[in-house]
Design a binder for these strands. Structure first.
Length: 103
DNA sequence: CGAGTGACCGCAA
DNA sequence: ATTGCGGCCACTC
């Protein structure tokens, strides 16, 4: 029954990220079942549903993504709106805000 | 159908 | 310490 496309799973995980929380592409990819597909998550994010909270998804360094609609500028602003303190395009409380579904 | 690309990650020199 | 390169999988054209 669990045979949805990788993209479907990524959507589910991202959609489950609560406000004020963030996840890394690698974590999301691992939850989707492909720990080596962090790039795919990024690719899906670019071609995927923009209605999803992609702004809660950051890279392994807790930094903002590059292809985000509006650039890091918009990305940072969106995260700050969620209540995520950012500094120099890097989440200060990244390790504390890092969250995983099922936790 | 085939090929290229990507909002990444990890390691090596 | 920093920089550069490759690898991996799925998606799109």
């Amino acid at each position: 029954m669990n045979d949805p496309k990788f993209r479907e799973r990524v959507y589910a995980v991202v959609a489950q990220i609560p406000p004020g929380r963030i996840m890394t592409y690698g974590d999301i990819a691992a939850m989707a079942g492909q720990a080596h597909a962090a790039r795919i998550v990024g690719g899906i994010a670019h071609f995927g549903s923009i209605e999803l909270p992609w702004h809660r998804v950051v890279n392994r360094f807790g930094g903002l993504a590059s292809g985000y609609p509006g650039g890091k500028r918009g990305h940072q602003k969106d995260l700050e709106t969620e209540g995520v303190p950012i500094k120099d395009f890097i989440i200060t409380d990244f390790e504390e805000r890092r969250w995983t579904p099922g936790l």
